[in-house]
């Protein structure tokens, strides 16, 4: 089993004069499902983006280690899977091309068997060679979830993962999420009770506003 931990030390983020959160500390020290909860605008997405290295914190630090090896913030891209409704893939490529191309850009060897298995699970295998521009928003969300899960990365972040998914899609997602949580540290930023019910530890963002 992979040994992964993510922790934050006195994390603060402000946009201009407005503080999104202050003095945020947490430790997620083993594979499993962890949650970030909070009302709209409380900073869930901001925290998810800071953990993934897309945003820099105004103060404090994020530490990430895989098998006791500290991961530099510049190298975090290789270890992270990320799915969110606001992440956009390339419409001019097919779903399969997107998954393959983005894996190679991430510096990971493309695992076609795992990719095809997940496409089958999500019911998109038959339509894998269609351009993404022909996909509905729910199908696009499924492809983003497949991309986040298909490389078995140690850290996976889902921001509002069930947005646009139908009930069948949610069921498949939750089933695969539980399997994935054996080997990956999964962080879910969400307000959905069903999402948060799966989490062993939850950060409530409102607690870090003052």
């Amino acid at each position: 089993m992979i040994n992964i931990s993510v922790s934050a030390e006195n994390l603060c983020k402000n946009f201009g004069r407005r503080f999104v959160f202050k003095n945020l500390n947490f430790i997620f020290d083993k594979p499993g499902i962890y949650g970030i909860a909070g009302i709209n605008g409380s900073g869930k997405t901001t925290l998810a983006k800071i953990i993934s290295g897309v945003l820099s914190p105004s103060q404090g630090k994020i530490y990430c280690s895989v098998n006791s090896l500290k991961i530099n913030p510049e190298e975090i891209q290789k270890y992270i899977g990320y799915a969110a409704p606001y992440v956009v893939f390339y419409d001019e490529f097919t779903a399969y091309e997107n998954l393959k191309m983005l894996s190679v850009i991430q510096g990971i060897d493309f695992n076609s068997n795992r990719c095809e298995k997940l496409l089958t699970e999500f019911g998109l295998y038959e339509r894998r060679n269609e351009h993404l521009s022909n996909y509905s928003s729910g199908m696009k969300q499924r492809i983003k979830i497949i991309f986040a899960m298909m490389n078995n990365l140690p850290l996976i972040i889902f921001d509002e993962p069930i947005t646009n998914l139908d009930s069948a899609g949610k069921e498949i997602f939750y089933r695969l999420l539980k399997q994935q949580a054996i080997n990956s540290l999964i962080i879910i930023a969400s307000n959905e009770e069903a999402d948060l019910a799966l989490c062993s530890k939850i950060i409530i963002m409102e607690n870090f506003r003052k």
Binding site: S52, G53, V54, E74, E75, Q77, I80, Y82, Y86, V87, V88, F89, Y90, D91, L102, I105, Q106
Partner: peptide
């Protein structure tokens, strides 16, 4: 414009 900036920020290093 297409919003694909973010996926590149998540998966690739700035130098690449």
């Amino acid at each position: 414009e297409r919003g694909t900036f973010l996926i590149l920020q998540i998966i690739a290093s700035p130098l690449n």
